[in-house]
Amino acid sequence: MSTELPTLESLGPRIMICGPSNAGKSTLAVALARKLDAEPYHVDLFRHLPGTDWVQRPDEEFAALHDAAIREERWVMDGNYSSLMPQRFARATGIILLGDNRWANFRRYLWRTLFQRRSRPGSLSGDRDSIKWGMMRWILIVQPPKREQDRARLRAAGLPMVELGSMAQLNRLYRAWGLERRVRPSAPASARGRA
């Protein structure tokens, strides 16, 4: 990341937030949406059924929820899901790519799953979360080698983009853009109502 952050306004009214699991995407989405008077969307909530321990929706329903959200005029959407990125790129006006090392992301995963017994941005209703070997493998083994490929794909979209490589850089962005972290349930009404 360059030493000079772009302005928030340069990213426009529809912002994608991408990056590894447990890097702060959902919390940032809520903070940005509050600042921009936009709707925060968490792609994980489109993918998974509410009130479950991350049980996936059928693919067609997942895509329909995602595509309905990106048709809105103003939004901040966190999540990756490469199969749906082409249509997201077509509607987005800016991208933020978060990053941190795998061990920091892994620590945050353990903390939020084992000890954070309250709703957090991006969590499923009911907070029925549990440690999953597949998720640990994803964070520590599968996801890190894909980082350069993901970065190249996002850059190729040709949208204004901010890249952050650590939690320290993310904290700097919060300060520079006057963002406020507030922990409260953040699923938009439109996602909560689509069980």
Results as ranks from 00 to 15, higher is better:
residue 191 A to W: 04
residue 119 S to R: 05
residue 124 L to P: 04
residue 136 M to R: 11
residue 146 K to A: 12
residue 11 L to Q: 09
residue 143 Q to D: 11
residue 29 A to E: 02
residue 167 M to I: 12
residue 143 Q to I: 00
residue 4 E to R: 13
residue 22 N to V: 00
residue 114 L to N: 10
residue 71 R to N: 03
residue 92 A to H: 02
residue 25 K to Q: 00
residue 150 D to K: 11
residue 37 D to E: 12
residue 35 K to F: 03
residue 62 F to V: 02
residue 116 Q to M: 14
residue 109 Y to F: 14
residue 20 P to Q: 09
residue 56 Q to V: 11
residue 30 V to Q: 08
residue 161 M to W: 10
residue 34 R to C: 00
residue 130 S to F: 12
residue 190 S to W: 05
residue 173 L to C: 13
residue 186 S to C: 14
residue 1 M to L: 07
residue 44 D to I: 14
residue 149 Q to Y: 12
residue 89 F to H: 03
residue 99 G to T: 04
residue 99 G to R: 05
residue 44 D to V: 13
residue 193 G to K: 03
residue 18 C to W: 05
residue 182 R to P: 00
residue 4 E to C: 09
residue 148 E to R: 10
residue 113 T to E: 03
residue 97 L to F: 02
residue 15 I to P: 02
residue 74 R to E: 00
residue 115 F to G: 08
residue 73 E to S: 11
residue 183 V to I: 14
residue 192 R to H: 03
residue 13 P to D: 13
residue 78 D to W: 01
residue 159 L to M: 06
residue 53 D to W: 02
residue 122 G to T: 14
residue 53 D to P: 00
residue 193 G to D: 03
residue 98 L to N: 01
residue 67 D to F: 06
residue 58 P to G: 10
residue 160 P to M: 12
residue 26 S to K: 10
residue 29 A to W: 01
residue 32 L to M: 12
residue 166 S to E: 10
residue 127 D to C: 07
residue 166 S to I: 10
residue 105 N to D: 07
residue 61 E to M: 08
residue 31 A to Y: 00
residue 101 N to K: 09
residue 53 D to L: 04
residue 133 W to I: 10
residue 176 A to N: 15
residue 110 L to Q: 11
residue 137 R to G: 09
residue 181 R to C: 09
residue 155 R to H: 06
residue 51 G to P: 06
residue 28 L to R: 01
residue 137 R to D: 14
residue 7 T to A: 13
residue 163 E to H: 09
residue 110 L to W: 09
residue 46 F to I: 07
residue 134 G to D: 10
residue 121 P to M: 15
residue 34 R to P: 02
residue 53 D to H: 08
residue 189 A to R: 12
residue 183 V to E: 11
residue 60 E to T: 09
residue 108 R to C: 02
residue 1 M to T: 10
residue 63 A to C: 04
residue 167 M to L: 14
residue 7 T to G: 08
residue 111 W to I: 02
residue 43 V to M: 15
residue 50 P to I: 14
residue 97 L to C: 04
residue 24 G to P: 04
residue 8 L to N: 02
residue 110 L to R: 13
residue 65 L to V: 06
residue 176 A to L: 14
residue 176 A to C: 15
residue 178 G to K: 04
residue 160 P to R: 13
residue 51 G to K: 13
residue 64 A to T: 04
residue 29 A to M: 05
residue 40 P to S: 07
residue 70 I to D: 01
residue 165 G to N: 08
residue 134 G to I: 06
residue 29 A to F: 03
residue 117 R to P: 06
residue 80 N to K: 00
residue 70 I to M: 01
residue 168 A to Q: 15
residue 105 N to A: 15
residue 20 P to M: 08
residue 148 E to S: 11
residue 94 G to R: 03
residue 23 A to G: 07
residue 102 R to H: 09
residue 81 Y to V: 07
residue 152 A to N: 12
residue 20 P to E: 06
residue 113 T to R: 07
residue 37 D to R: 13
residue 185 P to Y: 14
residue 66 H to A: 05
residue 154 L to E: 01
residue 83 S to F: 07
residue 55 V to N: 00
residue 153 R to W: 01
residue 102 R to M: 12
residue 47 R to L: 05
